[in-house]
Design a protein around this nucleic acid. Structure first.
Lengths: 144, 144
DNA sequence: ATGCGTGCAAAACCTTTGCACGTCA
DNA sequence: TGACGTGCAAAGGTTTTGCACGCAT
């Protein structure tokens, strides 16, 4: 989904397009990886220093309402945000060193689905986060 | 791992067995599902009303040090705690209605592993949460 | 024009920490 | 006895909220 489509969806859902809102969403849209609130704030203040933290929090609600926000919750307790613009359900390979996140297609194994089915569990959604070291960081770490 | 083994591990690691600590761990041990801090506090106060919230938080550190604590982070932003006593890495089927959580064996699919391998990503850990309705709740919901 | 959105500050929450006292080994 | 553990209260950090003003529609 391109940025204009996001804005369109926003307007069609009855939300106003303010300068702040545009900057806030744009910051997330153009980030190539999930970002923390702190990073998000910096990115937005970069474009408009007057933007308040609470405005971002309020726009989180908007993005959630639009079904566009993905919250990533690493084991370390932090929260990272990213836009979920894919058709396909996807997950991230998250590098523990550089923070780079790469979306991958989801494929729960057949055996897995069978186990769940056997329990007559009605699976609605799932959340998978994969942590490790990306190729580049792995190479770097090997050097030491 | 039975409860005595947990206590043994605790002592062998140089921690003292206090009345509070025992109650705190026991509460989590006997709970059949991951519990919130609030539930954990209630369960412990049930046995000893004097136990302080900060003592539980401090014992979280202890349990983490022992590698026994599993923190579950549902999408709703809450945090739930459970003891991780299995040999095998496991995940939970969590019922969105009754909250019951059932551990299942983990098995990332071969295709999945291959995709990750192809990217030369060095996978360290992963976190999978499965949400849906358990058999009982599904039946209940169908009645309506 | 009018109601939604924002900045600001305060409040609400959750978690951590310092300190003095208590208790386990 | 001595070090670790705890209760209490205060501090810290993050997120939410009330209010008055501002701006998009």
């Amino acid at each position: 989904m391109d940025f204009n489509k996001v804005i369109e969806l926003l307007k069609n859902s009855g939300y106003k397009l303010t300068n702040q809102r545009k900057i806030i969403i744009e910051a997330l849209y153009h980030s190539d990886k999930p970002i923390s609130m702190e990073e998000w704030l910096l990115l937005t203040k970069d474009k408009n220093p007057g933007i308040n933290l609470s405005t971002i929090y309020r726009n989180i609600d908007v993005l959630e309402d639009l079904g566009l926000l993905e919250k990533i919750r690493p084991k370390d307790g932090s929260i990272k945000y990213t836009l979920n613009l894919m058709e396909h359900h996807s997950h991230f390979l998250i590098c523990k060193r550089c923070g780079k996140a790469e979306a991958i297609e989801c494929c729960l194994s057949k055996e897995f689905k069978k186990i769940i089915e056997d329990k007559e569990f009605d699976l609605i959604e799932h959340n998978l986060e994969l942590y490790g070291y990306c190729k580049e960081c792995h190479t770097e770490l090997d050097k030491k």
